[in-house]
Design a protein around this nucleic acid. Structure first.
Length: 267
DNA sequence: ATGCCATCCAGAGGATGA
């Protein structure tokens, strides 16, 4: 079974690219982030006609996460228990955002996650990011306490570069989000709760990334960040036989700024 | 060793992104 995650940066803009890629890569389960549409705008039929079941949550033009599967898609869950809410505007009522979607596919509990960006160090959105991750750690840790043999995959855009090797030049990020101590600590807490980066052993660095900014020739200059991860429970990790970051898909006109990440699992 | 910012909605500019 092949499971992948991809921040597509608008599914409507890139649906042709995504469907072609799914077929070329023979992917069974795909978690998408930043679909940037409401449920009624999601191009569900384009995936159904290729044999995929579809679960999506999107409330507006922002965020949006999905799981596509051709090996079953059951027990769909919008958001995880205890997920933080966010007030988009001053004085607005805090509400859940479309940043987490769970579904069981081929025996794996897959969570498509779009971790808050954080914007700037000290910004309210930065605190939201840290608290959102702490809540995720609590929920995900609980799943393994309840069932240590569970096959769980926490996949998506984590908006954190956990190691210095995960950016091309730490000096550029001296006062930036994504590399700060508290963010890295929040990421590590999820790992310590029992979830391992199953991709890194198959894609060693340095210089291996999943995201390249559209500006300043970042991609041809190979100046990127590794911020998209597949974190797997022990039972999931044992099934992983290979992994790759599909850098090819970042090339050309109309590419997302993120590359897809694929994991191969033993049957 | 593949290219010089993109997406959305609104409505011709602003917010978001990492």
């Amino acid at each position: 079974m092949r499971l992948a995650t991809w921040n597509v940066n608008s599914v409507r803009t890139r649906v042709d690219r995504v469907t072609a890629w799914l077929q070329r890569r023979d992917v069974d389960v795909l978690a998408l982030q930043e679909t940037k549409c409401r449920d009624d705008q999601f191009p569900e039929e384009r995936f159904r006609e290729l044999g995929y079941e579809v679960a999506h949550v999107g409330y507006s033009q922002w965020n949006g996460v999905a799981v596509l599967s051709r090996v079953g898609l059951d027990d769909v869950e919008v958001g995880f228990p205890g997920m933080l809410t966010w007030a988009a505007k001053e004085g607005a009522e805090p509400a859940a955002e479309a940043r987490a979607l769970g579904a069981t596919c081929g025996g794996v509990r897959v969570w498509s996650l779009y971790v808050p960006n954080g914007r700037q160090l000290g910004d309210p959105h930065y605190d939201y990011k840290l608290e959102w991750l702490a809540a995720l750690r609590t929920a995900a840790g609980g799943w393994l306490t309840a069932d240590p043999a569970a096959q769980v995959a926490l996949v998506g855009d984590w908006n954190i570069a956990p190691q210095d090797d995960d950016v091309w030049d730490m000096k550029v990020f001296a006062h930036s989000t994504h590399v700060s101590g508290p963010e890295r600590e929040a990421f590590r807490a999820v790992v310590e709760a029992g979830y391992a980066d199953v991709v890194r052993p198959h894609t060693p660095g340095p210089g291996v990334y999943t995201y390249w900014d559209y500006t300043q020739l970042r991609f041809p200059r190979r100046e990127g960040m590794r911020i998209d991860f597949v974190l797997g429970s022990p039972a999931f990790e044992r099934r992983v036989t290979n992994a790759l970051i599909d850098r090819q898909e970042r090339k050309g006109k109309g590419a997302s700024d993120h590359a897809p990440v694929i994991v191969e699992l033993a049957d």
